[in-house]
């Protein structure tokens, strides 16, 4: 499977990738996007099977990205990996069509729990 990691922090993209490997998902293919607008382009160009996105990004936030995808008819499985995990945000994420929201700081177990059904 191909997984798109969208985060404006290069360091955080590396940490998400490392954590995915620790969670046992390192054999998948990974693509990176540097913000929400880049992620929208990469979804169109790369057709990933899963998007892992930060929420708070320049150019297009994660929730704007998700709404743009769903508004354009793209139903790619989508999860947030974000520094904020309030109930309001979880509700907004779910209403927009996200599968899950993993709040930073996270562990490999968080990724295993959220993704094992889909990626194992």
């Amino acid at each position: 499977m191909k997984i798109l990691i969208a985060d404006d922090s290069k360091v955080m993209r590396q940490i998400v990738l490392r954590t995915m490997r620790q969670a046992g998902f390192g054999h998948h293919d990974f693509v990176e996007a540097v913000d929400g607008a880049d992620a929208l382009d990469k979804v169109a160009a790369e057709a990933p099977d899963l998007v892992l996105s930060d929420w708070n990004m320049p150019n297009k936030t994660g929730i704007e990205l998700l709404r743009a995808l769903r508004g354009g008819g793209n139903e790619v499985p989508f999860g947030f990996v974000t520094s904020e995990g309030s109930e309001d945000m979880r509700g907004a994420a779910q209403a927009a069509g996200a599968m899950f929201l993993i709040a930073k700081p996270f562990t490999a177990e968080h990724f295993e729990s959220a993704l094992s059904g889909m990626l194992s």
């Binding site: 922090s9 955080m12 709040a103």
Partner: peptide, 17 residues
């Protein structure tokens, strides 16, 4: 710089919550 900013971002997210 990116790493230090991200540390504060996660601290800020926790405080906001």
């Amino acid at each position: 710089h990116d790493a230090v900013g991200e540390v504060l971002n996660v601290v800020g997210g926790s405080v906001k919550g």
